[in-house]
Design a protein around this nucleic acid. Structure first.
Lengths: 172, 172
DNA sequence: GATTTTGTTCAAGAAAAAATGAACAAAATA
DNA sequence: TATTTTGTTCATTTTTTCTTGAACAAAATC
């Protein structure tokens, strides 16, 4: 292979250093996903795909971001679960290639569906149990107070559920 | 003091075990604040104040939640910065007493103001620098592509800023 | 069917975040 | 002014979360 290498000064082009702009965009997303409570690697992957004009395979992410294969694999899996990243068929290459989803509305919808909905559901289950508990509370002022507080939580929960779909329409 | 202790079977009433309902409510808030990216102790404190009919001083939080004084102090400070907890004057007690803010709209406003706004501001600064960088990009397809992507980020950022105040009105 | 390529999983290590508790400061009380 | 009460700060420890890399599986290629 030595001879072929000589013909190509940068045999592994996918490992090229990131440009200043690329670093900036990736960094922007690293901060952004931290707000959502996701790990840095998620921001790096999405950011890299976002600045890249072509779909990229896992290898390239590993090389250019200097990230382990494990992180890249898990990160892509996670991003796919809520449609932030799509697999794109590349003719003549059997590796999967990925691009970033660019519609803010879809990204939001995926986030709400995968991250928020399940927690709201879980919260409602808990509230159901709490509500049941309040029935056994004493009939004095403290008991009455606590019953009211649990009711307030139920109103909050219901309100949150109503607001969620509205968020999507705000981004229309 | 031994004689007085004998008269009072539970001298430190603030250390009473949490009731099942109290544990449930506190647990609910611990999960809730995790969604927002806050530590457990924040949820414990807010939850405890939320189920308590009377304003509580720091000591009581430390005793009942079995939490260090440091955590309680820092947690209360944090909660006060965005108005989730208010100090209430208690006649005849020189300690500060705290209650939970109960208006969902105010809580949201505080969260947006203290947590989201600063990050949006910071993000815009970064985008300013990135936008400046794009001016120096090559005039080829890749350069054009990257300029467009940075513009897209700027639109996202502007949109996010527009949506924020609307969130408040949704909760009205 | 052996080999290479591609991607996943998961135990262990590394890094980041949170909690602790002791030292300190400030203010009230004695 | 000395002492006690109340609350804060911050270096250290603990806990939690993230990343790594090696072992493994699946599928394509030889």
């Amino acid at each position: 292979m030595a001879t072929l290498d000589a013909l190509n000064p940068s045999p592994n082009s996918s490992a090229a250093e990131l440009s200043e702009l690329e670093v900036g965009v990736i960094d922007f997303f690293v901060s952004a996903v931290k707000v959502l409570g996701f790990p840095k690697s998620i921001g790096e992957i999405y950011g890299m795909l976002f600045v890249s004009s072509d779909p990229l395979p896992l290898d390239t992410l590993v090389d250019r971001l200097r990230m382990s294969k494990g992180s890249a694999s898990q990160g892509l899996k996670f991003l796919r679960t809520f449609g932030a990243v799509k697999a794109v068929y590349q003719p003549g290459d059997r590796r999967d290639h990925f691009t970033a989803e660019l519609e803010l509305k879809r990204l939001t919808a995926g986030f709400l569906r995968e991250q928020i909905q399940p927690r709201l559901d879980h919260g409602e289950e808990r509230l159901g149990r709490l509500s049941h508990l309040t029935a056994q509370l004493s009939q004095d002022a403290v008991g009455e107070f606590q019953r009211e507080r649990v009711q307030k939580l139920e109103r909050w929960s219901a309100r949150s559920r109503e607001v969620m779909p509205l968020l999507g329409s705000l981004l229309e």
